[in-house]
C-alpha cells in the first residue's frame, strides 16, 4: 500500500522536475501531463480502498467503491487536457516566433527583440 503511494509520488515528482528543469517547452507540457495523471491515479487508487464492485447499481451490487473521487477525476482529466492543448498551441506559436523550443533561447530572443 505504501509502495503504491511512493510510486505515484515518484511519478508526480518526475513530472514536476520536468516542468521545472527541462529545457524543451514541449517536455515541460509532458511533465504537466504526468503530474496530472499521478494525482488522478492517487485519487482512484485510494478511492477503491473501500468496496469491491464498480459503482453501477444493479442486481447483486452491494459493496461499491467510492464513486465521488471517480466523478471528480473525470472533471480533472478533462481540465488537464484542455490546459495541455492550450499550452501546446502557445508552444507552437513561440516556436514560430523564435525558431527554438528551448526556454532560455526563447526568452533571450524575445527580450532582445524589444
Amino acid at each position: 500500500m505504501v509502495i503504491e503511494r511512493i510510486l505515484i509520488f515518484l511519478l508526480a515528482l518526475v513530472g514536476f522536475s520536468a516542468i521545472v528543469g527541462a529545457k524543451n517547452i514541449i517536455k515541460k507540457v509532458f511533465g504537466l501531463n504526468l503530474l496530472n495523471s499521478a494525482i488522478v491515479l492517487l485519487y482512484i487508487l485510494e478511492g477503491s480502498r473501500i468496496g469491491e464492485q464498480a459503482p453501477i447499481l444493479g442486481e447483486g451490487v452491494t459493496n461499491i467503491v467510492d464513486p465521488v473521487p471517480q466523478a471528480l477525476m473525470l472533471t480533472a482529466i478533462v481540465i488537464g487536457v484542455c490546459v495541455t492543448a492550450l499550452a501546446l498551441a502557445l508552444a507552437v506559436r513561440l516556436y514560430k516566433a523564435t525558431g527554438s523550443l528551448e526556454i532560455d533561447t526563447i526568452s533571450a530572443r524575445l527580450h532582445s527583440e524589444q
Binding site: 487508487l45 464492485q53 461499491i64 467503491v65 477525476m73 482529466i77 487536457v81 501546446l88
Partner: peptide, 22 residues
C-alpha cells in the same frame, strides 16, 4: 480498480485527443 468511467475517459482523452494534439 473498479473505475470504468474514468478508464473510458482516460483512454479517449489521454490516448486519443492528447496524442493528436501532441
Amino acid at each position: 480498480l473498479k473505475a470504468p468511467d474514468v478508464a473510458i475517459t482516460e483512454a479517449a482523452v489521454g490516448a486519443g485527443i492528447s496524442t493528436i494534439i501532441f
